[in-house]
Amino acid sequence: MLKVDNLSFGYKNVSVFKNISFRVEKGSLCGLFGPNGSGKTTLFKCCMSFLKYNSGSVFIDGNNVKRKKIEELAKLVAYVPQEHKPPFPYLVKEVVLMGRTPHMGGIFGISKDDRRKVEEAMEMLEISHLADRPYNQLSGGQRQLALIARAMAQETPLMLLDEPTSALDFCNQIRIWNILKKISARGTTILACSHDPNHISWFCDDVIVMYRGGLVAKGNPKSVVSEQLLGTIFNDICSVGYMDHLMMVYPKNIQAGCTVAAVNNSSP
């Protein structure tokens, strides 16, 4: 569904990542993992063609992203940004309805079909009760749910989520991942980045790990997320254990903290 070939991107002289290649199979839920500044968001923006990459190519469902018009691309891929606040108090249902924009005709009438899709998306994320609340007065987590509902309403074969659980509480994080699993079970391909190795190993079918401007691992999260890999990218502070057969990543020593290199590893 998503095929990235030898993709490289850099701002002026600073390279962000080089020669990245991977595939995400249709209907799978793929996690993108990597420390801060490893270029996850930049990779997403290249896939969405927000940023013009230097070399390589991105194919979505066999279409070269670079050759697609914005209107056509919006029918192929939906993007859930990190939560933000727009200046105008649009209602949640209006925000979700914006996801239907690529499917609306030239005339700005909203069809019954659009309305139904919006309802379905809000029901699936269990935010129907927020429909008439202004979006910019909600909590960060509720806004995130609305943005995911918007991407659902967009009905694209591929969905990219930039840290979908970053603003959510413990319970909602688990809920979102389960919803993502449900969406992918319906055939939508999902690529979501996350900072929590546990979520990746529990919920994702595949994982791609970025570190220092390149891919360091990809494949089944159960085998990829290992003490050795986490040791490399997080300077040896993680342990991997099992709790009731549930794989669990936890810090070896909570006083250890991260060294500067682990936090600021964006230098090429």
Binding site: K45, A74, A78, V95, M98, P102, Q154
Partner: peptide
């Protein structure tokens, strides 16, 4: 183009993602 203005007011990147140049 009123609806496009709604989408545009969410920000440039989001407008792009929603198919509005």
């Amino acid at each position: 183009f009123g609806w496009k203005l709604n989408v545009l007011s969410m920000g440039d990147e989001e407008a792009r993602a929603l198919g509005v140049n």
